[in-house]
Design a protein around this nucleic acid. Structure first.
Length: 426
DNA sequence: TCTGGGGTCCTAGGACCC
DNA sequence: TCTGGGGTCCTAGGACCC
């Protein structure tokens, strides 16, 4: 038995927890550069605003209904998420942190208690300790727990907790025939369209379809989803987060960039950020990819989105080395005359730092390797203690004119001394 | 003016091996 | 007329997730 606990409108709720004046008002949280809506309060959803809508398209609607926009504040969300997961850990011995705002809990053996009541306790605890509204879905497979969570969110009569396993066969049939197939975890837009052409439109249609045929026509993934819908658990809980197989750091610019010099600073900064993530999971990279992009929405402008793959002779996690390779790659693909909107770096071919093989004919001495390692440890230590970017490569530069735009910033309430919220007693 | 960032898995096809 | 059988690795593309 599984439970899925999922925060409601997570980013919006994080802001509301620290700024109660936002409660009951239409609020959106914007992506980097204040580009599009990545979180919407219920009031905004009710106005018909879709996920991912560009903010500039909402100016009129916003004025009309007093929609409040907030720039995204990832230091806040990350910290609230940590606290959220820590609270949930008290409710089950086995926990899978699935995303920043979602968590699977193992409810195996919980059948003897009232799981719906237990779910309510979880909701109340998280609300009281963190100010975060959440919903709980319970079911005999992860896919059904997900589906139950959807029901808990959409149908108010369940008060935020829904347990699929409590339904009779007939109630199950009624429920799944009232939900569109696209709501199922793993069935996206494309698959929904293709399934609809075969007459599979509701969750019930999919659950009762022939697995062999689906596997032949689609894939083993769809087949697994069908089994999960029938209550046959195929997906295990993953308690320990697996090390990433690739690490990306990329960003759209606050304004279009033309000069190689600016791109170099940006790519050096992104590479340095990616290398940090790489070392945090104790990996080294065997290859690195650099890419650039012009603005695809400007149809009148010349488009160019090159990328280059740079294999490294010897895997490394050294920021300096990675940056110098990235710079070499950037120079190869950079062409003047374009207005670039975005740049990025991907570290690939990752392997464990302890187990990675040095090159047989390497010109790097063991001593140099150890020096590099100590240098990176020192760098990370200082930046962890004093704040990201305190110590950095000169190549990253300081005059970041292309930096992301943040028009509606909010305090890092829980992670910066200067921005702690202050409570007054009357 | 203005459109995010970061991931994973599966499959088919090509190239190559004995 | 007619040309084996079994396997691996890599890549690109498509689909999905948050």
């Amino acid at each position: 038995m599984f439970a899925l606990v999922d925060a409601n409108n997570f980013y919006v709720s994080c802001h509301r927890a620290f700024d109660p004046s936002l409660k009951g008002k239409p609020v959106v949280v914007l992506s980097n550069n204040d580009g599009c809506c990545v979180a919407r309060s219920n009031e905004v959803k009710a106005l018909g605003v879709k996920m991912g809508t560009p903010w500039f398209q909402l100016y009129d609607l916003a004025k009309q209904h007093g929609i409040i926009a907030l720039s995204s504040n990832y230091c806040l969300y990350g910290d609230v998420s940590l606290r959220f997961m820590r609270i949930l850990a008290q409710f089950s011995p086995v926990q899978e942190v699935y995303s920043i705002d979602e968590c699977f809990l193992d409810f195996t053996g919980f059948n003897y208690i009232d799981m719906t009541g237990y779910g309510q306790t979880i909701r109340q605890r998280v609300l009281q300790w963190l100010g975060l509204p959440v919903c709980v879905g319970i079911g005999p497979s992860k896919t059904l727990a997900k589906l139950s969570n959807y029901v808990a969110k959409k149908r108010e009569q369940h008060q935020g907790v829904f347990d699929y396993s409590r339904l009779s066969q007939q109630e199950q049939d009624e429920l799944v025939s009232s939900i569109e197939v696209g709501e199922v975890w793993g069935i996206g837009r494309r698959l929904s369209e293709r399934l609809a052409r075969q007459g599979i439109e509701t969750v019930k249609d999919l659950r009762d379809a022939d697995t062999k045929t689906l596997r032949r026509q689609f894939s083993v993934v769809v087949e697994r989803t069908v089994l999960e819908l029938r209550g046959v658990s195929c997906l295990d809980l993953e308690e320990v987060a697996q090390a990433k197989k690739e690490i990306v750091s990329s960003r759209s610019f606050g304004k279009l960039v033309v000069k190689l010099d600016d791109l170099q600073q940006a790519v050096a900064s992104y590479t340095s950020r990616a290398a940090e993530k790489l070392r945090r999971q104790h990996s080294v990279a065997g290859a690195l990819q650099v890419f650039l992009q012009t603005n695809p929405h400007k149809t009148g402008e010349l488009q160019y989105h090159p990328n280059i793959l740079i294999p490294l002779i010897e895997p490394t996690a050294d920021t300096g080395l990675l940056v110098s390779h990235a710079m070499r790659g950037l120079k190869r693909i950079y062409k003047p005359g374009y207005r670039y909107q975005k740049a990025g770096v991907m570290l690939m071919d990752l392997s464990g730092a302890k187990t990675s093989q040095p090159d047989l004919f390497s010109h790097v001495s063991t001593q140099d390797r150890q020096k590099s390692q100590r240098r990176m440890e020192t760098l990370d230590h200082i930046n962890r203690k004093m704040g990201r970017g305190t110590l950095r490569l000169a190549a990253e530069g300081f005059q970041h004119t292309w930096k992301v735009r943040t028009d509606y910033p909010s305090p890092c309430y829980t992670t910066r001394w200067a921005e702690l919220p202050i409570a007054y007693a009357k």
